[in-house]
């Protein structure tokens, strides 16, 4: 399967939402993808199981940066437990395209950081 690109990916890659640091985070973690050099660091402010604030510093390919951007946007205000249950299919939905097997690790890197952080 080849990887397709959506306007969502383009938009979120060139203008990533929630990009930057959080000063008052409660949880943070980094994840990297040695295969292509993607790097992401997530900052979470979690209260009573809810993600009150989320930000990330992400460097890498379009799929990786756009995934971090759409997931951050989606995760804010939601229960951490629910976000930790997200998988590849959910990211594909948020991005509006299916993810090819070669790019799975790029798409799920940000989720990996969230899992590590919490």
């Amino acid at each position: 399967m080849t990887q397709s690109y959506s306007s969502i990916i383009k938009n979120h890659y060139h203008h990533p939402r929630d990009s930057g640091k959080l000063s008052d985070y409660t949880h943070t973690a980094e994840a990297l993808n040695p295969l292509c050099g993607d790097e992401t660091k997530v900052y979470l402010k979690i209260r009573k199981g809810l993600i009150e604030e989320i930000a990330h510093e992400t460097r890498g390919c379009m799929i990786c940066v756009a995934s971090a951007s759409v997931v951050s946007e989606y995760a804010r205000g939601k229960a951490l437990a629910a976000i930790k249950k997200l998988g590849l299919q959910d990211i594909a939905k948020l991005l509006g395209v299916s993810i090819s097997s070669a790019r799975t690790s790029c798409a799920t890197l940000f989720l990996e950081a969230i899992w590590k952080a919490s």
Partner: peptide
């Protein structure tokens, strides 16, 4: 980014 370029070229 290189990876995205590679995906497009692969298609």
């Amino acid at each position: 980014p290189p990876h995205d370029l590679a995906s497009i070229l692969d298609s």
